[in-house]
């Protein structure tokens, strides 16, 4: 961990408070050696309209997804991406983005699959940073490329597969989809395109897994968090 965690008491009750930083904390720590700020948005042009000073752009679709296979980039691609953006394996990364950190959280997930140890989310994302009147710049930082090791992706540590879920029943499950999907009224998020979800939607009746609870963080028609490539479908 290159930079000490945000000691904000608001995060202390979380299982992993070190995974979040506040806007105040980030504003105070900008430019600190070992800290890299990454912006990852749904809208591919938003970074160009203005971003947090020093922030590096990483696009979920053009950078993190394989252009041919429906999967993330491979270990070599990840090393090339991060090294090329001047990010070292032991750097502390803070990611933020639009739409309640939708794709920022996606990027954090991908970085975690590749075992990047210290990657954090900016609490509140672009929306909070802007609401607080904090500054943006259009200046794109020039970072010297560094060597980032080629690491094989390891999903086992942080990803639950079907068998894991079946074995888990009876214990807490969190459903981060929309309330409409949670109660089974819809099979897709409200106010978002239906595209490419038809096959999945018709494969079973709408509703939830046994024991799942809706996520309090998901407001109606706000966002559709995505943790796997199979749901990564978001045209501008």
């Amino acid at each position: 961990m290159a930079v000490a965690p945000d000691p904000n008491p608001a995060f202390s009750a979380f299982a992993h408070p070190e995974r979040l930083v506040s806007t105040e904390w980030l504003a105070e720590h900008l430019g600190q050696p070992g800290l890299v700020v990454v912006e990852s948005d749904e809208d591919v042009l938003l970074y160009e309209t203005g971003h947090i000073e020093g922030a590096v752009k990483i696009d979920w679709h053009t950078d993190l997804n394989d252009p041919v296979e429906r999967d993330y980039l491979d270990g070599e691609g990840f090393a090339k991406l991060l090294g090329g953006r001047g990010i070292s394996r032991d750097d502390t990364i803070v990611i933020y983005g639009d739409k309640n950190n939708w794709w920022a959280a996606y990027a954090l997930w991908v970085f975690t699959l590749f075992g990047h140890e210290d990657v954090r989310l900016l609490d509140g994302g672009r929306a909070k940073w802007e609401a607080e009147g904090r500054p943006y710049t259009t200046e794109v930082p020039v970072r010297e490329p560094v060597e980032y090791p080629v690491v094989e992706r390891d999903d086992a540590a942080v990803r639950a597969f079907k068998e894991d879920v079946l074995a888990h029943f009876g214990n807490p499950l969190v459903d981060v989809r929309s309330p409409e999907e949670y109660v089974g009224d819809r099979t897709t998020a409200p106010a978002y395109p239906e595209e490419e979800r038809c096959a999945r939607a018709t494969s079973r009746a709408p509703g939830t897994c046994r024991g799942a609870r809706p996520s309090p963080r998901t407001a109606p028609s706000s966002r559709r968090p995505s943790s796997t490539p199979s749901t990564a479908t978001a045209p501008a």
């Binding site: 591919v44 696009d59 053009t62 595209e195 479908t233 978001a234 045209p235 501008a236």
Partner: peptide, 14 residues
């Protein structure tokens, strides 16, 4: 298609 991604271009096709 490369800079923006074909998926997003679908919005313009729409």
């Amino acid at each position: 298609t490369e800079a923006v991604s074909p998926l997003r271009i679908r919005g313009m096709s729409g």
